[in-house]
Structure formats: C-alpha cells, structure tokens
Design a protein around this nucleic acid. Structure first.
Lengths: 186, 186
DNA sequence: GTCTATATTTGGATAGAC
DNA sequence: GTCTATCCAAATATAGAC
C-alpha cells in the first residue's frame, strides 16, 4: 500500500472520529449547541485544527446530514409493510431527536445541504414512494396525507411525550384509518 | 385622570410598540434573529433602553407568546365546524411561520413561557377539546390522532410548500378520513 | 497537521451620567 | 427613561510558527 493511501485512510478515520463526537455533542446539547471549541475538546484537539478536516462548520452539518440519511436508508431498507415502516420511522426519529431535527426539520439558520449530501435523502424519498406503491398507494393526494399523518405522529411524540409511546401506539389504528380511506392492500 | 395613570398608559403604549416591532423583526429575520440592538433601532431607541420595559430578552419572547395565543383564541373563537376549524388553524400558522414556531414548536433554547403567558395557551387547548367534543370526538386516542393529523398537514405545508396550498387543500378529504374512522357528526 | 495567538463579529446585559 | 460607554461571553475563522 502506498504512503499516500495510508495518509488518506488516516485522514478519513479522523474525520469519522470528529463526526462521531459531533453526534454525541448534538445529542447532549441540542443541534444548535454544536460549537467548534467543544467539539475540538471532545476529540482532543484545539478548535482551529478542525479546519484541517472541514472547511467550515456547515461542512460538518453537511457530512452529518449525509450520514443521517444513510443510516435512515439502512434502517428502512428491509421494512416493507405499512405499519412496521411507520413504526421504524417513528423509532428512528425518537431515538435521536437532534438527528430528526437535522434531517427533517431544517432549523439551522443558513444551512442548506449540498447536492452531494442531499443524494441519500432523495434516495430515501424514492424508497418511501416505492413502499407506498407496493401497498397500493399511488395518488399524489394519498401520499401527501400519508406523509403529513406519519410526520405529525412523530412530531407530537417527540414534542409532547418524549420517551413515552402515547402517539407511537396509535400507529396501527392511524394506518387502518388511512388505508380504509385511500385504499391499499389489507 | 391621575398623572400616574397617564404614565402607566404611556408605558403600556411603548411596550406594545416594542412588541409590534419585535413581530416585524422575527417575521423578517426568523425567530432566532431577534436581537435587542436591531429591535431598539427599529423603535428608535438604544438597546439598553429596552430594559426599562422588559427585564430580559426572554421577557419579550414571553409577552409575544402570550400575544400569539390571544390572537389564536380570537381567530378560532367563532369557528366551530371541523373542516373550517382545521383550515383556520392552517391559515393562522402559515400566515406567520415565525409565530407558529414560537407558539407550537418551542425551538428557542432556554425559553420556557411563564405561567401567566401560558394561560391563554391552556385556554386554547381547552377550546380545541370542546370543539372536538361538539363534533362527537371524545376518546383520547381520537383526539391525539386528530392533533397529529392537523399539525402534520400544517407542518408539511409550511416546510415543503410555503405560500402554496398543496396540503391545505387536502384538509376536507383528511377530515373525512378522520371522521369516517373515529365517528363524529356528519 | 497541530498549535498559539488573535481578529472579528455579535450577542445580552450593566453602570452611571443626565 | 434614555443615553453613552463598557463589560463579558461566546462563537467562527484566520495567520503564522513549529
């Protein structure tokens, strides 16, 4: 193996280490609480050293955005039925509200994901559409009501009953309501 | 009229003026973009002068929170039917997303409304419950699904089609789906 | 690649004169 | 009540030595 390859590998490892620490930090302090000083401390560096790995703070959010949707795809890949899919989505969101905020709420002032980071997110959307189609849901209206319903359940769960299951347990009933009205396999 | 009364009245007028400017500012810059310097400039003051009217920045958010729910109550008071109520809620939220964020999303780090500011919010919740009961919806599960569904529609509308009506126009159909499943007057 | 030192900006908040 | 002057804190980011 060439020295250049080893160097690149080491660099990637450090980048991953920084991102891991960033996730820990936002889980503890909230998404907006990510500061370069704290992050550097957590990986045993001084703040300016981070700039050897990321051009700017937004580049860190960008990499996290991409990682988040990759994890999302991984999690949803094998879940095909309507109710389990909604439950998997709920669990993915509630187990890390900071990640939920980054991926689905977009509340960081001035942050827009770059096209590269955006790619897995587009893939995730396509996967969702595919799953719905397999369940017999194809009309744009039905899809829009579905997304509103599921994200609404998740949002209520996170903001009004964190750690509980007050809205999570309503998923089967809500899905029944949805399929009764919009058709779809039973 | 006593001089003291006139003084108090003048003071209240200035407070209102400051709050009006604060609303303008958050509509323009986002909820987190409210800075005391900018706010003071907008009302023709220097920043420290604001402290004669509000103890701290959070006191301004607090007063805005209260005003927001008072406006909400005013708006919803005469709307009793299910579909018009959901539409009125949608319109109230979309016409001022910063207000929506303050009242219903609670994303300001460290801000918790005081009990006094909270009062109209509690009243609003009670009103909502009353409206649902009048429509024949009383089970806790049905109420929770209803809130998830309506806030989900609003949230999708604001984040994915601001200024449009892609989710707003689905309200009648979504309400039909809901009442079909959970009963309620038709 | 990492450090120290520093620039720069931007906040909220206070002291004290008037 | 309003001002000027200032403090203090926190943040991102850059320069330049090693």
């Amino acid at each position: 193996m060439l020295a250049a390859d080893r160097r690149a590998e080491r660099r990637e490892a450090t980048r991953r280490q920084i991102l891991d620490a960033a996730w820990e930090l936002v889980r503890a302090e909230g998404l907006a609480g990510l500061s370069l000083r704290d992050l550097a401390t957590r990986v045993g560096m001084q703040a300016p050293s981070l700039y050897a790995y990321f051009d700017a703070k937004h580049a860190i959010y960008d990499a996290m955005f991409r990682q988040g949707f990759e994890a999302f795809l991984e999690r949803m890949r094998d879940v095909t039925e309507l109710v389990p899919a909604a439950e998997a989505f709920m669990d993915f969101c509630t187990e890390d509200p900071a990640r939920y905020q980054l991926l689905f709420q977009r509340t960081i002032p001035g942050f827009e994901p770059t096209p590269e980071a955006y790619a897995p997110s587009v893939e995730a959307l396509a996967l969702g559409r595919e799953r719905l189609a397999a369940a017999g849901i194809t009309s744009p209206e039905a899809i829009d009501v579905y997304t509103a319903l599921v994200t609404g359940l998740v949002d209520q769960q996170i903001s009004n009953d964190p750690g509980g299951d007050r809205w999570r347990r309503l998923i089967p009933d809500a899905m029944q309501m949805f399929t009764n009205h919009f058709g779809g396999k039973r």
